[in-house]
């Protein structure tokens, strides 16, 4: 299972790199979604994959039951997903704005900030 997930991570990163280097904003965004999922998988696998119960404490006891899953990677991934969601929303809005204001979706054609003629 670990090996399978590691391979999936690799495929995701490869796909993300391909999309991000395509040079248009929409593809960059899609690549961003892929690569953040890949990173979440890395954290997930880092927390070790075991057969375990959910890390919930029932009302009778004070600590998690024996054999409960490691809840830290889940907390980390949840935080990363929330942050990634916020950043993705911002980047989406920015791309839309860039497209309507600069009239192009290709990063190479955006030369407002760094004009080519500089003499």
């Amino acid at each position: 299972m670990d090996i399978l997930l590691t391979l999936v991570t690799g495929v995701l990163v490869a796909g993300a790199s391909y999309l991000m280097m395509a040079g248009t904003l929409v593809r960059f965004l899609l690549g961003l979604v892929l690569i953040s999922n890949a990173v979440n998988l890395i954290i997930f696998v880092s927390g070790r994959l075991t057969y375990a119960g959910p890390p919930l404490i029932d009302s009778a006891s004070k600590t998690v039951a024996e054999g409960a899953a490691n809840s830290l990677p889940q907390a980390l991934i949840l935080t990363a997903i929330v942050i990634g969601f916020g950043l993705f929303a911002f980047t989406l809005a920015l791309s839309l704005r860039a497209y309507s204001q600069l009239g192009t979706d290709a990063a190479d054609e955006m030369r407002e900030a760094e004009p080519e003629d500089r003499t």
Binding site: A89, A93, L96
Partner: peptide
């Protein structure tokens, strides 16, 4: 607030 704000702004932009 955050999600509605982002959504309304996106919708306005579109």
């Amino acid at each position: 607030g955050g999600v509605c704000g982002i959504f309304f702004n996106l919708e306005k932009a579109v």
